[in-house]
Amino acid sequence: MSWLSNALTSSIGRKIIMAVTGLFLCSFLVVHLVGNLQLFKNDGGAAFNIYSHFMGTNPIIRTLEIVLLLGFAFHIYEAVALTGKNRAARGSQGYVVNHIEQNSPWQSRNMGLLGTVILIFLLVHLYNFFYRARFGELDPDINNNADLYTLVVSSFHQWWYVLLYVLAQVALCYHLIHGFKSAFQSLGLTHRKYTPFVTYLGYAFSVLVCAGFAAMPLYFFFLQ
């Protein structure tokens, strides 16, 4: 299988892994967002807690959780590997004057930075909700499901937490604006008929998904 590892560790192979894992993570975002929209249901969190109970116990979901974890792991690992390779390729002597901002968008050059912000957010986020839901002691709600809803609501009343959330969604948005269409480019999925559509879809996806996630803390902080 050396051909496979050779292919996947080549510069294009790494891009392809980035693209595939990136698109997979995009699909996760959609699922996560759609599920979490139940937070907006005005039922004191009953529906949300049923949903989170399901997510925490269904064997298929639990298996996909591992796949998701691998997706993150590969995405991050390849990012680090590519960054190292690319930094070495640039060489030790940099330009004295470099106006790269005149020929490329900021987010495209700063995917590592954006990704790091998202990663930090993710760790906080996972600790606060995932870890405590899975391994911590949450009180049961009226349906006898673990009451994650109350934890969410209380978290979203802390200003710093809301701020972190919103900032992370801005970072995610920029990350996606580059990442979404970039994934199609990396996979060679371009066509003069469809690529313009993919570009618009990428923008729409990035803004809608991140606005959706950001709306949750803002909703609870300001309106509840």
Binding site: S10, S11, I12, R14, K15, L82, K85, N86, A88, A89, R90, I100, N103, S104, P105, S108, R109, M111, H178, S182, Q185, S186
Partner: peptide, 20 residues
């Protein structure tokens, strides 16, 4: 591509500076 990697060039991250 194998030769390109061997020469020590970086990997494309779809920034677009090249085409610009």
């Amino acid at each position: 591509i194998a030769q390109m990697d061997k020469e020590g060039f970086g990997a494309c991250t779809n920034i677009g500076s090249c085409a610009a």
